[in-house]
Amino acid sequence: MTTETRSAGPRPRILILDDEPIVCKRLKPTFQKMGYEVETFTDSASALARLRETTFNIVITDLKMEGADGMQVLMGAKESSADTHVIVITGFATLDTAKESYRKGAFDFVAKPFKLGDIVDCVKRIEEKQRGSGL
């Protein structure tokens, strides 16, 4: 039997961007339960505008979207804050897009469909990394 506790303090922020509302809808409650303050967007322009206003600990973005695509959002997030970790999700994963994502600073690249646990693990790895670096 285990008892897990969560650390108190200001809640970290996470931004989720996907033009398919179902992805936002399903990811949001999971991260809320993990203690995150979650904001979701279905258009990249609004998400980029929000990234210019506020710093997020983690950004989860789709790759292929109308207007600015995931790569632009990735760069926008990094410009806003170099400490922001970006996870790229896409239903059209190729080796080239994965390489490009990593080259531009993505923390991870996840192909859709994915299990909820996969992305949760990814976020936990970011948390560990941030704890390790004292952020």
Binding site: D18, E20, I22, V23, R26, L27, G91, F92, K112, P113, F114, K115, L116, I119
Partner: peptide, 16 residues
């Protein structure tokens, strides 16, 4: 399994 909520998916997944 996707129907049961195990996967996060979108329309592209269903088409594929």
């Amino acid at each position: 399994q996707a129907l049961g909520g195990e996967y996060i998916f979108d329309k592209a997944f269903m088409e594929t």
